[in-house]
Design a protein around this nucleic acid. Structure first.
Lengths: 216, 216
DNA sequence: TGTTGTGAAAGAGTTCACAGCA
DNA sequence: TGCTGTGAACTCTTTCACAACA
């Protein structure tokens, strides 16, 4: 299949074809009227725009279960990410290989970052160690941090941080689950702070359906 | 601090106070004019709306590094989730405890789901096993699935699936990192599919800044 | 002819601004 | 007086619909 139409792609993605065409148009005019989009060319252009055509060396700090899971995760390589080093504070782990990569000690963090030209760091340490690790990564030249530790990191301007909360998606499922369960039954309450009366009439949004605060 | 104003909360969250008030208003009229919101009452109402006041038993299937990391994750308990069981297909793991919870064999999956009244399942298996596990979970009565396996699951109507891709956040960081690096340098290209000329003028969106396809 | 690329219209989401009330 | 709750205005996003064109 050398070419594909916006209609086909939109059906596959479950979105409106006009939206898809407009989104693509922000990247450039890569389609051919009457024909569609050249698949190979489109894939390349999107890959390039997203940075998939570059090699991104990353370090993972904190090689517990989560760090090890990330080191073994297959999805990184195909998106241009290369795990350049694994770092942990536990001397017992130093030298041991995880996913074929030797774990190095935190003492050498700065040297590892500089030797490998790393600009993206992944923090998978316990919450207590995260800020300190973050500070050292930033001082060593890292400008983007992916934080799996359950704590908010503070960083200087110019450094990007994204926090991954493994329970937030579960939270969203539970929210919908709750709605499924309570479709006819009365609102489950169970008490709550005494003293203050609940206003029954105002519990739901004006459309009487899904409160507007939750992703669909 | 017994009460808090929308202005204070908005500043803390980095949003507009009117937006915050309007969002709260969809849950009900829980504030007091001239005073603000009673903190305890507000926390309770939001918790209840989000389902945090309920007990949600979940099972985790696939106790590799990721499954173990999830079983150990502290953030679940505080949000009303209780890991009711760990399930793995490897007989060598059966009976071993992870995070204090014994691993059970996949053979008993249906019985485990039913005995514990589980409606939310977490899949942390390799991609190849995910659909099969999913089918069995659904058949046993699970109606919400959190999928960490790098594969798209198909489920019947009425079952919710959410997919977590551990590399997507890294992708977003790399995208911004690329922009930081290329702020003045020419667009890094490096070839690409031959034969087709790139239209230099159209590479960026009409605002000449961030293409509209990436979260800020 | 068939499909893109895109102005214009419609729809959602956000912010303003102020009446209403404690 | 001070802060909420909310209609109205504004802004951003999505969809429609069709001219342009390979």
């Amino acid at each position: 299949m050398p070419t594909v139409s916006s209609e086909e792609l939109a059906a596959a993605a479950g979105v409106n074809s006009a939206k898809l065409r407009k989104d693509f148009s922000y990247l450039g005019s890569y389609g051919t009227r009457g024909v569609g989009y050249d698949v190979e060319y489109l894939v390349y252009q999107i890959s390039r725009e997203l940075g998939l055509t570059q090699d991104w060396p990353v370090v993972i700090v904190g090689i517990g279960n989560l760090g090890a899971a990330l080191a073994n995760y297959g999805g990184f390589a195909s998106r241009g990410f290369r795990v350049a080093a694994l770092i942990d504070a536990d001397p017992a782990l130093t030298g041991r290989a995880v996913a074929g990569i030797p774990v190095q000690h935190t003492d050498d963090l700065e040297k590892i970052i500089q030797d490998n030209g790393v600009s993206i760091g992944v923090i998978a340490t316990p919450a207590g160690a995260a800020q300190q690790v973050c500070d050292r990564l930033v001082a060593a030249g890292v400008t983007s941090i992916l934080n799996f530790a359950p704590t908010v990191l503070s960083v200087p301007d110019g450094v990007d941080v994204r926090k991954v909360d493994l329970s937030i998606e579960l939270q969203i499922l539970a929210f919908h689950e709750q709605r499924k369960a309570g479709e006819e039954a009365a609102t489950p309450d169970g008490g709550g702070p005494a003293a203050v009366a609940r206003k029954e009439s105002a519990d739901k949004g004006p459309d009487g359906d899904v409160p507007a605060v939750m992703p669909a």
